[in-house]
Amino acid sequence: MDVFILSLASLMSVRKKAAPRNRRSTRSSPPRPLRRLLRQISASAVLAFVAASCALNPNWREQLQIEQLSVGQFSLEDVLPDWRWPALPSLPSLSGNLSTVQSPDGVFVQTSFASCADFFPQRSAPVVPEAPILRELCFTDFALLHSGQYKTPVFVVERLSRSKLSQSSQFKRSDKFYAEARLPQAERAELADYRGSGYSRGHMAPAGDMYSAEGMAQSFSLANMVPQNQRHNAGAWSKIEGDTRKYVQRAQGDVYVYTGPVYESPVQTIGAGKVAIPKYLYKLVYDPNTGKSWVHWHENSPDTKVGAPISYQEFVNRTGLHLLPHLSR
């Protein structure tokens, strides 16, 4: 970033270093209009590079302010009068392969997850109801579809096995929560949103499931969190997570686990960023070796108890989420 600023400063200082009008030069120089045009073209090239870099790296936009692009008397408006920072919708989408699907039940989005398709059974990515600002994020030990509207996941998926869970005990829980830098600031939760809210930062992919050091650290991304009632998180929900791990350790092969929030209107929020508080949480467990699937459906409440799970089809009826499209009717 400092290199960009120095480059701009160097270009923009040309005007200050120009020879006085009444002083002759021993070297010939281009006519004044051409010199100005050349300065504008050079500065425009650098600014375009900065703009593209900031669009691809949203965090840089927080470090680089418009005022830094004005040095001396040569300002941004001299070069590109109509130039503005890229608006969020024009940023490169992390889910550029998403496509919509029409059905009698409404408009749905076919996700892709081309970079981490192995997390899904038969490499079959979910079909979900159309919603604003959906972005796919791949991590080392899990993947998720993120909602920029609610600033929480739509779902998080894990591909677990007995051998993977046997490695999880090797890694110490980091507890270093962080905002997800791959998401634009306007779409992500911040640490300050949870501070003093009365809600815990509830993991969707649990830290206890992680089977690599990178996965453990990444599980503390706020993109993997929802505002969760603290008693529910430490009580009934913690038991569901533990029971799921016990099942995986008994299973004969890979088990796919999907976890996420469900909202009901009116949606309550926390923090200045208005991170949505889910009404319910779900955990779908699918064992392709037995063909069995079930869904734990919990209200995000301190009084929630562990009860009987619901069927996958009932889950689809309640949410419209076809997380296992090869099983959906």
Rank of each mutant, 00 (worst) to 15 (best):
V248Q: 07
V248L: 04
Q249E: 04
R250Q: 11
A251N: 07
A251C: 03
Q252Y: 09
Q252T: 12
G253S: 13
G253I: 12
G253V: 14
V255C: 00
V255M: 07
V255F: 09
Y256E: 15
Y256K: 01
Y258E: 11
T259A: 02
G260K: 05
P261C: 06
P261M: 11
P261Q: 09
V262M: 06
Y263S: 09
Y263T: 01
E264L: 05
E264V: 07
V267F: 07
Q268A: 13
T269A: 02
T269M: 00
G273I: 02
G273S: 01
G273Y: 03
A276T: 05
A276H: 02
P278M: 03
P278D: 05
P278Y: 01
K279V: 07
Y280E: 11
L281W: 08
Y282F: 15
V285Q: 11
Y286E: 08
D287P: 03
D287L: 02
D287M: 06
P288C: 14
N289Y: 11
T290R: 13
T290E: 08
K292L: 09
K292N: 12
S293H: 14
S293V: 06
W294N: 08
H296Q: 15
H298W: 04
H298N: 13
N300R: 03
P302W: 08
P302L: 10
K305H: 14
G307C: 07
A308S: 03
S311N: 02
S311C: 09
S311I: 07
S311E: 06
S311H: 10
Y312D: 04
Y312M: 14
Q313C: 01
Q313M: 09
Q313I: 04
E314C: 05
F315N: 01
F315P: 01
N317D: 06
N317V: 13
